[in-house]
Design a protein around this nucleic acid. Structure first.
Lengths: 262, 262
DNA sequence: TTCAGGCTTTGATCCACGTCAAGGGTTGGT
DNA sequence: ACCAACCCTTGACGTGGATCAAAGCCTGAA
């Protein structure tokens, strides 16, 4: 199973605003898992550098997905997991007739496709919000390698468990928080994730619309917009369209923790 | 690792109402996974009877949990998964100061503890809503056996994936549905699960309070109560305290699918 | 560079659900 | 079997966020 990993430099689609807002890593050479600058995210924790080379066999190919296109759709046969290497995805569940809902956003270093394992068919649509690229991890390979290589098996379990815990957090948000608390929690969550990717935690460009944020948070787009406006008035953020600056993380945190004060 | 599985008959704590409502299986001998009447639920699918005997080694012990007591709590070290064999649990996430939220209810044959894998510590409280009993599946054992026994590994992945998919459904419910749709969806979900356990899908005793249902559904207890009353008026259910009869599954389904009609 | 379509903001109004309150019912521990 | 503690129901009322509407602003494709 030769690895057909591309050795070309990564051309990231960075807008002017994006470059201004984030410390974008440019011109890195993307090679193999063992050298991948996302390896700690893609397959985080506890794997010795010596063993990492085994993982290179796992990634049989990479795949580009253009903005607006889908990586997979509801009902598609499940064959692989996908690790986002470049770009930004949303996962969308279809709630019948009219009401879809976004179940998550995926940044570089995060996994897509875990939903499909249960039934051998995907249960969500994975759609790129910008031109993106993923590492394809064929599940049959993954299971085979995991059998001989305990740390990978353990890590896969941890990644799945983490997804379960993440969704518990979303349930808490949807079930117990008011509108502005949800929006504040959302911004802080994005901030954390950008930070752990090495980007600015206080200034970034939203890749999704107000409507998509609302869909994720169980709110209408107008409510999301009003929350942004209100936070701006209070000096907690500045929001010019999709370009966001977080001016007061502590106070945003306080909005989440207790609706009062600030 | 000898299995210290109890060979005593299962004494189920059946109330008069419960016996009236459900076809309770009485007096079965509980032995080992390979003979367990819940084996298809506990470790569902695709494992040949011959191989099932391997799984017996997995269950090192069983544990009784009295009503109101916890199987594990937030922060407890993660050591084992638990398969409910008798009883009823709730999983509760603590949302800081005041606002807890219930993230799920676990019936016999369902797994508890998957949340703890990610960080080696549990992130929810698992609390028995009636006197219950679980099979303890030490995770280290599970991982070891799964390595040599592919179907178990695959099955564990599927169970975790199913939990992720289940939570997507809850997110849809919390984010997109109105109060009565949520309650109807909740009742239908319980109905399905009782049915797959061999109990009546149309008549059962709720093990949780209105407040706990509300916590799970992101509603207040009064709203849950009013939904029950409204469904009763329309002849969709009868509800006398915790004793529920579903009179019109099709119409309840329709309430979920589209708020209109019925 | 231009322009069209879609995104965002903001205001006015409405209503589903939360809140507060009171009374009755159920239950489980003794 | 009893009783206290908890649970459930129902009503009245308030409000947070949805809905409807309209105007301005981006953005990206040609």
């Amino acid at each position: 199973m030769p690895s057909n990993i591309k050795l070309e430099p990564v051309k990231q689609n960075a807008t002017a605003a994006e470059v201004a807002g984030n410390q974008i890593a440019c011109g890195r050479v993307r090679v193999a898992c063992s050298l991948c600058n996302l390896r700690e995210l893609c397959v985080p924790g506890g794997i010795s550098p010596a063993d990492l080379s085994r993982l290179d066999k796992l990634v049989s190919s990479r795949r580009k997905v253009k903005r607006g296109e889908s990586l997979f759709r509801v009902g598609d046969e499940f064959k692989s997991l996908y690790a986002v290497s470049v770009g930004f995805f949303k996962s969308r569940i279809s709630g019948g007739e009219c009401c879809d809902q976004i179940t998550g956003f995926q940044l570089p270093g995060e996994l897509l496709g875990l939903d499909g394992l249960a039934t051998e068919h995907h249960t969500v649509d994975a759609i790129a919000l910008q031109d993106s690229e993923v590492c394809v991890l064929p599940y049959a390979e993954l299971e085979r390698i995991a059998r001989d290589f305990q740390p990978l098996q353990h890590q896969l379990h941890r990644v799945m468990s983490r997804e379960i815990v993440r969704e518990h957090g979303v349930m808490l948000l949807l079930g117990s928080m008011r509108a502005e608390e949800r929006v504040a929690a959302f911004l802080l969550n994005l901030s954390e994730r950008y930070k752990s990717l090495g980007y600015s935690p206080t200034e970034f460009v939203l890749r999704m619309t107000r409507e998509e944020i609302g869909s994720y948070l169980g709110l209408k787009l107008e409510t999301v917009s009003r929350a942004f406006s209100h936070f701006s008035e209070k000096g907690l953020i500045t929001a010019q369209g999709k370009h966001i600056q977080l001016k007061n993380l502590a106070c945003l945190r306080k909005v989440v923790d207790d609706a009062t004060s600030c």
